[in-house]
Design a protein around this nucleic acid. Structure first.
Lengths: 345, 345
DNA sequence: CTGAAAGCGCTTACAG
DNA sequence: CTGAAAGCGCTTACAG
């Protein structure tokens, strides 16, 4: 069963007895009006009947537009990324673009290799979910003059467009909530400082506790090695050691918060009775944990949509300014936060 | 800042003063040996220095190979799919292929539209995670003679290669476990019968209870409208109505199991004390639910890998036979299953 | 309104 | 070993 050769403009033109350029004009809605109604109708009819689909790759070669956008993810298994990807894909689809998705990991040289491949495939732009605060790969993309936008994580220098959630606000909402409940010994388990999310949430935490005029010995920050459950558990253990008075933890994200759950359970501590925990992201099923996780919901799907929109704009007008779109997060109060015990220090 | 035009073979050839076909030969490792060592070295050097990356699209047009594979997902937000996608992507990458990923939903006409687009983009093959037991879209792909493999869900007629988990075995493990614990009134909340997973797990459940010689009034099957938490909750309510003696539920998947959790909690019933629940998939964080979910772990990443391997084989040898690869699942016993109460009916 | 031609950036038989 | 040429399937100025 040999694969039947795909039809071409010429095949179709021969069948209808017109020049293939005429078929081309008809197949493209934008140029369809250039040909006589009846001819167009006949061509369309035959095209439909024979299931003709013009070769977009050949067209792209000619028009210098691939209709491809590269999406570079650090880890698609992390539950933040699928909805972001879905958002990207949905607006791309509306404009006839399609994403090429690669799981690039965290290794910068591998990321660069992948981006080179994508450029070789003529992607018209790139969405990076892998950006760090200082990112050689991002520098590389900029040098290549390829349209780029970062999503979820921002970038320091303002050279590229970014779509992020407001991390300062997130921590302010978190700390306000905790202080409002009566907590006076609050800690933050930060994500990696190399990532804008880790850096800014930490920054936001510090700003927030200062705003509440908490004394320096009433709050504490510790950094987790990564945004993972394991690293969160480890950091939580160190935190309890370093800051035993703690009654509330603002975790860098939900996975880190889960790590806290794991450790507290192991130590026989009750959440929220002994220690309150707040996450960040509101990942799927955060409500199904025990206790249901109080967390900051970020607009993941919108983040993807907006990133795609920004990128498309960048592609349309190459010179346009880089902008940062900051989406507003929302605190979702559930069962992992409560007032501290009366006998809390 | 105009986008610097990308380099071409001709640009490079002009710079080095050789014919561009020579540059072409050097850029492709497979034909590199055709040119003199020193010339090749010089070309490679300049190519590296100038950051030349051959246009894969143009090459693909010439060689009739796009290096693209289409991946059609019903819903990337469903936690089964990201690891499958990761698996697909990883083996594709090894062979220089790249996936085009689209969230196609469940609507068949939209799926077909998307597949048409993908074919227009010259994908060399398709991985469908959207297959139903009788699937018009799959029929369409077969008529187009495009290499296809289905993943996670199988297909009835054996016309295409499938990679699935052994659903009959999964239910046998589940029922064995439940019966072993002493349960004598067991129910299954099945997924949609239109999907192979829903159909076969139901089948497996029935076979398993028969093997244990449970009397017909000692087991019950009810079908959920979809594989979702909400549908699971609804079905669970109906189940309690229809089969009040039930002490153990084999849920169609983990989301359905979560729906059961939701309903049981609402009714003030304890899991596992009043009713045991078993899921299917072992989705991320199934262990972090309360109680931790006993479930069947399927080899998701391997499933993706294997699907990609099968597809690549199909692409290499178009005529080759369709095969079904069945991966072996594993029961993961956690806290949602226990012996029934002594006073259970 | 339609056709004929050039060309997008490659690969690869064919000469030499 | 290297060059010159044809051609992959399109789009689009240019004629007529």
């Amino acid at each position: 069963m040999p694969e039947r050769k795909r039809l071409t403009l010429k095949d179709l033109a021969a069948e209808i007895d017109v020049h293939y350029s005429t078929v081309s004009r008809v197949m493209n809605p934008a140029t369809r009006h250039l040909v006589a109604q009846d001819v167009a109708a006949r061509i369309l009819e035959v095209a439909e009947a024979r299931g003709f689909r013009p070769n977009r790759i050949a067209a792209g070669l000619r028009t210098q537009r691939s209709g491809l956008v590269g999406v570079v993810l650090p880890d698609i298994a992390n539950p933040v990324f699928p909805p972001i990807l879905a958002g990207i894909e949905s607006v791309l689809a509306q404009k006839g673009y399609v994403p090429i998705v690669v799981n690039a990991g965290t290794d910068k040289s591998r990321q660069r290799f992948i981006i080179d491949q994508m450029i070789g495939r003529q992607v018209e732009g790139l969405v990076l979910a892998t950006a760090e605060r200082e990112d050689a790969v991002l520098d590389y993309c900029i040098r290549q003059h390829i349209p780029v936008v970062t999503v979820n994580r921002g970038e320091e220098t303002g050279r590229v467009s970014c779509v992020v959630s407001d991390n300062l606000l997130a921590m302010r909402l978190t700390v306000d909530h905790l202080v409002g409940l009566g907590h006076r010994h609050i800690a933050h388990i930060a994500g990696p400082a190399a990532l804008s999310t880790g850096f800014l949430r930490r920054e936001g935490f510090v700003q927030a506790v200062r705003r509440h005029r908490l004394r320096r010995d009433a709050w504490h920050v510790i950094e987790a090695a990564s945004y993972s459950r394991e690293a969160g558990k480890l950091a939580c253990a160190q935190l309890l050691e370093a800051f035993p008075a703690v009654t509330a933890i603002a975790a860098g994200n939900d996975l880190v918060a889960m790590g806290c759950y794991d450790l507290l359970r192991e130590r026989g501590l009750d959440c929220p009775a002994d220690i309150s925990v707040v996450g960040h992201n509101d990942m799927p099923f955060a409500d199904a944990l025990t206790p249901p996780l109080t967390t900051v919901r970020i607009a993941v799907h919108e983040m993807g949509e907006e990133a795609a929109r920004l990128l498309l704009r960048q592609i349309d007008k190459p010179g346009s300014d880089a902008v940062t779109v900051q989406l507003t997060p929302q605190l979702i109060v559930r069962g992992s936060t409560a007032a501290p015990r009366d006998d809390a220090p």
